[in-house]
Simulated assay, not measured.
Amino acid sequence: MIRRPSTTRVGAAGRAVADKLAPPRGPHPWTGWTFSAGWGTQRTLEAVLVQPGVVMEVDVDVARDSAGRWRHPARPHRIRADVDVQEMPVP
């Protein structure tokens, strides 16, 4: 079961991508990754991994911490239907 993001916490781009999410069909490239709740916090966010089948353009601040994590949250901008997932590098 995929939990949809709350519409009060995401914009139109986030709501648009929510309907395109599906459970992973095999090994996920981010298995084992952790996501922090915010810069300087020890709290880890619960993440539900989904099938990497949609390319989403995001806005990010370039600031990173010593571990290479973004210091500020990425904000969804728009779905890139013109870009295939296979064209994207795996981090």
Rank of each mutant, 00 (worst) to 15 (best):
Val55Trp: 02
Met56Ala: 06
Met56Phe: 01
Met56Trp: 00
Met56Gly: 02
Glu57Gln: 13
Glu57Ala: 09
Glu57Thr: 07
Val58Asn: 00
Val58Trp: 03
Asp59Asn: 05
Asp59Trp: 12
Asp59Leu: 15
Val60Tyr: 02
Val60Ile: 15
Val60Trp: 02
Asp61Met: 11
Asp61Glu: 15
Asp61Cys: 10
Asp61Ser: 14
Val62Gly: 11
Ala63Gly: 13
Ala63Ser: 15
Ala63His: 13
Arg64Asp: 05
Arg64Pro: 00
Arg64Glu: 11
Arg64Tyr: 08
Asp65Cys: 01
Asp65Val: 01
Asp65Trp: 01
Ser66Gly: 14
Ser66His: 15
Ser66Met: 13
Ser66Tyr: 12
Ala67Lys: 12
Ala67Gly: 10
Ala67Pro: 00
Gly68Trp: 03
Arg69Gly: 01
Arg69Ile: 02
Trp70Cys: 05
Trp70Thr: 03
Trp70Gln: 07
Trp70Lys: 03
Trp70Ile: 02
Arg71His: 06
His72Val: 02
His72Arg: 14
Pro73Leu: 12
Pro73Tyr: 06
Pro73Met: 10
Pro73Gly: 09
Ala74Trp: 05
Ala74Ile: 06
Arg75Phe: 07
Arg75Leu: 13
Arg75Ser: 08
Arg75Pro: 00
Pro76Lys: 02
His77Thr: 05
Arg78Asp: 11
Ile79Gly: 02
Ile79Trp: 03
Ile79Pro: 00
Arg80Pro: 03
Ala81Gln: 06
Ala81Val: 08
Ala81Thr: 09
Ala81Ser: 10
Asp82Arg: 07
Asp82Trp: 04
Asp82Lys: 08
Val83Met: 04
Val83Phe: 00
Val83Ile: 15
Asp84Met: 08
Asp84Leu: 09
Asp84Lys: 08
Val85Gly: 02
